[in-house]
Design a protein around this nucleic acid. Structure first.
Lengths: 155, 155
DNA sequence: GAACAAGCTATAGTGACTACAGGGTCAACA
DNA sequence: TGTTGACCCTGTAGTCACTATAGCTTGTTC
């Protein structure tokens, strides 16, 4: 199967498949005479595993670790449990952070009930004059699901 | 005040201050004869505003919008309210996504109660063989607080 | 005058892709 | 046989909000 078929079979853009290959998550496939990649069932299964882990928001590094366990079936799987527990902890912490953030934002939103001149807007004034107090310092913003709040945006 | 003092006064690394200047969030400051940046109270206030917004996890683009309102005090502030409502909506949606993710992860974790050979690990098996079903497709992972789950990590 | 802190510019790296540019391969059809 | 068009290839740059480094200059203190 060629890369486009593999992409369709697993719901993965072809650029992403090539990216996983570069990152060492997928083994180098065979090539046709014309230099096209050729994949088998093993590749499809491995890619599905990766995508399933990504849908659970694991990092590529975490997935690399899980793949090592998959590639060593006789080994003890304790590390898998440990990794997953840590991942769950990160997600839970992130939810707590975001809930605190939501409370702060709703409180701020309450400062301006109706539209008026910007100079009298309760929101802008609060953002201008209140101390940052217990808000987490943006100098070291916690990022990503694993830790905090700030992150890259696509929207 | 020089850049280091401004950084201390606002809890901002100096590289970040220079970055905000490049991004057009902070106006170009005056310079000493030796080419050092010199800041006044206005700069400190503006930077504090920016940092407060960042601690509420707004993007630099959102902050740019708010700064435009601050710079036009006579304008109607409706746009501020709209922006904040949208931001709150993004955060709330992200919390919902993460809670669903946490449920999925805890369910997965339940598949392997004790450590054993990786080949019999319920977690690895579930990740290998179950359909991705209703999990959000990683082909278009929602990123950042504003939308979803995947994000850059610093940990 | 020498040491040292703090400043300067420019550039590259982070994570996990995504989006080109500029080409090559291959099957189908006129 | 020629050509269209879908697909494939490599390589590079862009995303976001910083962060870190290299290699230099300025300013203060001893």
């Amino acid at each position: 199967m060629k890369i486009g078929e593999l992409g369709k079979a697993t719901g993965t853009p072809v650029e992403t498949i090539r990216y996983y290959e570069r990152e060492g998550l997928l083994p180098f496939p065979a090539r046709t005479a014309g230099n096209f990649r050729v994949y088998g069932e093993g590749h499809a299964e491995r890619l599905s595993f990766i995508r399933r882990c990504r849908s659970l928001d694991m990092t590529l590094d975490e997935i690399r670790t899980l793949l090592r366990f998959k590639d060593a079936p006789a080994e003890n799987c304790l590390g898998v449990n440990v990794l997953l527990d840590a991942h769950i902890g990160h997600v839970a912490a992130r939810i707590r952070d975001l809930r605190a953030l939501e409370r702060q934002l709703r409180n701020l939103r309450g400062q301006c009930r109706e539209a008026r001149e910007a100079v009298h807007c309760g929101i802008l004034n609060e953002l201008s004059h209140l101390p940052e107090k217990d808000a987490e310092r943006p100098g070291s913003p916690a990022r990503g699901v694993h830790a905090g709040v700030g992150a890259s945006r696509s929207c």
